[in-house]
Structures are given as structure tokens and as C-alpha cells.
Design a protein around this nucleic acid. Structure first.
Lengths: 342, 342
DNA sequence: ATCGTCACCGCAAACGATTGCAATAAATAT
DNA sequence: ATATTTATTGCAATCGTTTGCGGTGACGAT
């Protein structure tokens, strides 16, 4: 009745056959006469019959739906990943149910629960900044439930992950600043518990070490918020102290970099003449701000595509108890714009 | 077995009662002894029983899932709307399944089909640029299927819509440029078949008329792509022709405005001294570019929230044959930045 | 006339949960 | 001791679809 959607039973009744016959006829099973098949198919066509996906899910314990859990939708990089996910999912007949956690651990837990209740076939997840305990993931992994982590991946064994080469990206960015002749380096780092923050910091440090440049631990700042205001605050405080000051800033995200630039310009510094800045992610605004911000481009769309492909493979191979982990590392790209060209 | 999820039957078997008793005990139906209730609840708790949402959907013809169809995820405004949708849906125990159409009509059709197959309880939609025929919507409306349009709404009767006051926003933007003393106006309009494009153009025109300023039809350009490159092309072509030229540009979206600014700066024009520019939407980059772009802020998050609330009401009232349409119009806000202050 | 072999189709169980109705036993009333 | 109520539970159908197995009738073979 609702939506006027015809069911197999309706067809069966109208044709005076059984539901099983209709089902088989529609799928060209052997053992159904051509005449019956023809009648069934014609009526199905005429009634615009479409199988009820919910009934199928129940029957087959397969929903053709994947869950995506993401910290924030309003985030250039993540929205790009979602886009990639959407494309591959759609192309393979999968639906995507989406939850944003708003960086809340509790929300992450409850979203996963609901999704499992809804019998998703697999899960794509980038966990929240608050997440420090990975038991909820471990349980799923132990049950051999298909799950792929992207961008923010937990440090537990045998997981399937897709990340970018944060270390190399940070290394490239820092080396670029070094090559430009900057001498004193500061780093605006990401939230402490995220691996990406650590990796970027490591890349930053290693580039400095490789070029015999001192690392000043007082010039490394964690930015838990990742907001423009936060980095404006940090940079202003730093530069207003006077004394020796950094002439190069590598920020682990573009927003922080943009904030740093605002603060520096406010304080009368010339970018890139006096201070060089490089960000991370290549948000849309990077090419539009003044000066245009050099940054490390992350292939978000590709990440979404690959993560989804991997997940679909996991789903397909669920039974084959292939429990080994796998990590795909995507290359980043240094985009040199004005903010870092001395 | 899969996921180790216990079912009602498992509990029933373990306790040597019937499934119906378990079901009733769990929901505190009358007619079940306290002792039985206690045993059932304890075991359910212990087994971490969670009802299978798919089975419930099938039984109750209600999935607690809403579908969202959106042209693009990687779009500041739309991602903001999604965020609002997510929040309200989550707060009310609804799941969100998402499809992006990439502005393709065919994809819009097929996404709606799949969602209906999956028994979504309602649909939130902002249709694609290619969509010119609204039959697929009309069918759903005729069937009294809960559907709410946002931002891009079709011109058919008795629909429930949430839009921003595009007319007023455009009027405000244009009037602001007039007030600043600009004299010759150009408009970068959106895709022709979108109502928002029309409304914004009307607002633009009316502001000019109200102030006795001539409307030059040759200075109104439709931007089907809405890309930076497109508007760079258009503006460069225009300004390289020479002769009388506009000294004020109102663009119906920020990307086009940003493109116009790039083109103008390339050609050596001073913004805002020689040419004023105002955009539409308040993308994140507006406050970061040079000069900061004046624009019309759209309450995307609020739009998502309201659209979802309306949809949930429609779902709740589905049976009461309340077929009348409704359109919520949200106010925009003129954000005056440097790009338009002569 | 009996048997085997097909071609074709329906029954019923299953997926997990809900719910109207009937059934049983115990308790109370007469 | 019988009738009636009450408390507690189970049966079976239902949602829409799939699928193993069994059943029917026609046909040719012996």
C-alpha cells in the first residue's frame, strides 16, 4: 500500500502462482516455464516492481550499506574523502550512511552501535580527537567485521588503513623552507593523540636534523582546536615576547597556518620576506589568500576511493579468514606558493 | 553468529520461554511475571542484546532512516547543511543515508530509487543543476511520501521547502554596493534553471531599479559551472573589451566572486577602490582572501536543522492527510568586508 | 499396466521481531 | 465441587524475499 509498491506476493496473487515461482521467474531460475517467466516479468515491469531491500537485508544478512564515521562534515579534506567514498560505493551498488562525531568519543561509540544494529556490511572510520581507547575497534576486528580506517588510524595490529604519508609531507614542507634559506623554525602541531600529528612532527624534526638545524622545543605548539583564533593567539604571544624569533613556520594544518599569517601580518611582519609559512592539506582557500599559502596537498578523494575499495574487498572476502592487516600510504604533494618563497 | 549478536530467539531458547515472551518482557508489557521479566532482562543485558533494526524496519515498515540527496558534498554551504541535518537526525534517533548527485539528473533519479527500496522514512533533497523535470518529485508527493526540499526547491505546489531569502540577500548586497557609491553594475548569475539564481537576479535588478540605476543586460552573465576559472574567463573577456566597464560586481556565489577578483587584480584593477565585489554564501575563504570578500551569509546549519525538523514532523503526521505545502524562508546577513568598501 | 524421467511448480521454513488471540494453570467466587 | 475470573505464557501470522525439498502430471519406455 504505502508508496503503492508492489510486492512479490501481489504479483503471485494476480497471476495465481506462488511467491516462490515469482521469485524464481524474476531471476531466470531453471525449472520455470518460459510462459510463466514471461507473464511474471511483464507484470513486474508493469507494476514497476522493485525488491524490498529491507526484506533482502534480513533474508540475506547483507544490507549493501556501508557506514562512514567522520569527525566533521564541514571540513574540506573530509568532505573530499566522503566524495570519493560516495563514488565508489555508488558504483558498486552500496549505500552510504553517514555519521559525524563532532570529535566526540561518546558519539563515536553510539554511532557505531546504531550502524551495527542496522546491519551495515562494513565500516569506514576516521576517529575523533577524543578517542584514546580503541577497544570498540578491537572488538569488531576480533569478530572479523570489515572495517577500514582512513587518515586517522589506530595503533593496533592487523587493521586495514589508508593514510597519506604525513611524515614525508612534513619533511618536504620543512625541507622546502630550509632550502629557501629560513633559519629558525617553529611548528604548529595537531592534537597530541592523533598519529598524523606525531608523524608530521617527526617529519618536521627529521628534516631539521638532516640539515643540522637546531630544534627548539619551545617553538613547538600543540593546537588541540585547530582553529584560526587559536593559532593567532599562540603566534601573537610568541612574537610579542621578543628576543630571538622563528622566521619559518610549518603548521600541521592550513587553518592554523592561515591564522599564523593573520597574526604575523597584524604584527607588521612581511610574508614571505621576513617569515615563511607552510600549511598542510591544501584547503580551497590556500590559493586565494594573501599571500597564497604553500601547503602539502593530500589526495582526499583518492583516499576515499581506495578506502572504499579496500572495504568492499574485505566484505567480499569476509569468510576467507584472511586476518592480516594492510596499510596503503598515499603520496602527498608539496604545492609551493608565495607564502614560503623568500 | 555473525557479530555474535544475540537475538530474541537466543534468549528465548536459553530461558526456555517463547520469543514472544522475551519480546514482551523486554518492553515491560503487562501480563509477564516480574520474575520472567527479570530473568529476560538480565540475560539480555549480559548478552548485550540489541534489537535487529532491519527486522524492525521490515516488521514496522519504518526504518528510522532519512535520505539526503545533495548535488555535492565538497561544497561549503552544502556540507554545512548536512551538518545541521546530521545533528537533528541523530538527536531524534534517525540515521542519515547520503547520496551526492554530482549535479547529474540520472544519478538523482537512481539515488532516489535506491533509497526508496531501502524504505527510508523521508527524503531531504536539493536537486541537481540538470534537473528540469519534476515528475519524480511529483509522484512522491502524490503518494504523500514525506519529502522536504532545501535551498533548491522545485516550482510545484504543496511542497515543503526551506530556503534562504535569496531575493533579499541579493537586494541587500546590491544596495550596499550602491550605497558605497559604485555606479556601473555587473552580475555573475547562477545556473539558469535554479530558482535561487532567478531570485538573486531579481533582487539585484530590483535594487538597481529602486535606485534608478540602469540595468545593463550585457553585464549579466550566467555561470553554469560556478568555477573560479569560468568567472576569470568571463571577467577578463569583459574588461579587455574596453569601453565603459562595470565598477561593481555582484556574484551569486563566492567562488565566482573570488574568480572575478583574481581576474581584476591580474588586469591591474584596485579592489575596492576601482571595482567593488560582493559574493554570496560566505564560504570559509571569504575572510581570508585579499581583500576580504564582502558576501551574503546563508545559515546553512540552521537550514539543515529546520529542514530535518520539518521532515520529521511530516513523517510523524504522515497519516493525517495534511497535504498543504509550506515554505520556511531564512534570513541572510550582509557581511561587509573590504572588497566592497570604496 | 507399471515404472522412471522429466518439466514445472508450491509448501514451508527461514531471516528477527511484534502482536492478536487462544490456552493453560492457578486463584477466587459461588 | 463447580463456575468464573485472573495471571501468565505460547501459537501463529505477519513484514517481503529466498530456497531446499517434495509433489503433480505428462510422457515415453518396458
Amino acid at each position: 500500500m504505502k508508496l503503492g509498491q508492489a510486492t512479490i506476493k501481489d504479483i503471485a496473487k494476480a497471476l495465481n502462482v506462488s511467491a516462490s515461482t515469482v521469485s524464481r521467474a524474476l531471476k531466470d531460475y531453471p525449472g520455470i516455464s518460459n510462459e510463466t517467466k514471461k507473464k511474471v516479468k511483464e507484470l513486474a515491469e508493469h507494476l514497476n516492481y522493485r525488491p524490498n531491500a529491507v526484506a533482502l537485508s534480513l533474508r540475506k544478512s547483507k544490507s549493501n550499506t556501508i557506514g562512514v564515521i567522520i569527525p566533521e562534515v564541514v571540513h574540506f579534506f573530509f568532505s573530499t574523502v566522503i566524495s570519493g567514498i560516495e563514488e565508489v560505493a555508488f558504483a558498486n551498488g552500496y549505500n552510504v550512511v553517514l555519521c559525524q562525531t563532532n570529535e566526540k568519543f561518546a558519539r563515536e561509540l553510539s554511532s557505531i552501535e546504531t550502524m551495527l544494529d542496522n546491519q551495515i556490511d562494513g565500516l569506514l572510520i576516521s576517529y575523533s580527537k577524543e578517542t584514546e581507547d580503541f577497544n570498540h575497534f578491537q572488538k569488531l576486528i576480533d569478530l572479523n567485521f570489515p572495517i577500514v580506517f582512513f587518515d586517522r588510524v589506530p595503533e593496533i595490529p592487523n587493521t586495514v588503513n589508508v593514510i597519506v604519508n604525513d611524515f614525508q609531507g612534513a619533511y618536504d614542507a620543512t625541507k622546502h623552507l630550509i632550502d629557501q634559506g629560513y633559519k629558525n623554525f617553529a611548528h604548529l602541531a595537531g592534537p597530541k593523540n592523533l598519529t598524523i600529528s606525531k608523524k608530521r612532527m617527526e617529519g618536521y624534526k627529521e628534516a631539521l636534523e638532516d640539515h643540522k638545524i637546531d630544534i627548539n622545543p619551545e617553538w613547538m605548539f600543540h593546537c588541540p582546536e585547530g582553529s584560526k583564533e587559536e593559532s593567532i593567539r599562540i603566534i601573537k604571544t610568541l612574537y610579542q615576547k621578543g628576543g630571538e624569533l622563528p622566521d619559518a613556520i610549518f603548521a600541521s594544518n592550513d587553518i592554523a597556518a592561515a591564522g599564523a599569517m593573520v597574526a604575523l601580518k597584524d604584527l607588521g611582519y612581511q610574508i614571505p620576506a621576513q617569515v615563511g609559512v607552510v600549511g598542510f592539506s591544501n584547503w580551497q582557500f590556500c590559493s586565494m589568500i594573501d599571500p597564497p599559502l604553500s601547503t602539502i596537498a593530500q589526495p582526499g578523494f583518492k583516499m576515499g576511493e581506495i578506502a572504499t575499495s579496500l572495504l568492499l574487498t574485505c566484505i567480499a572476502e569476509k569468510d576467507t579468514s584472511n586476518k592480516e592487516g594492510k596499510t596503503v600510504i598515499l603520496d602527498t604533494e608539496l604545492l609551493i606558493r608565495q607564502s614560503s618563497q623568500k
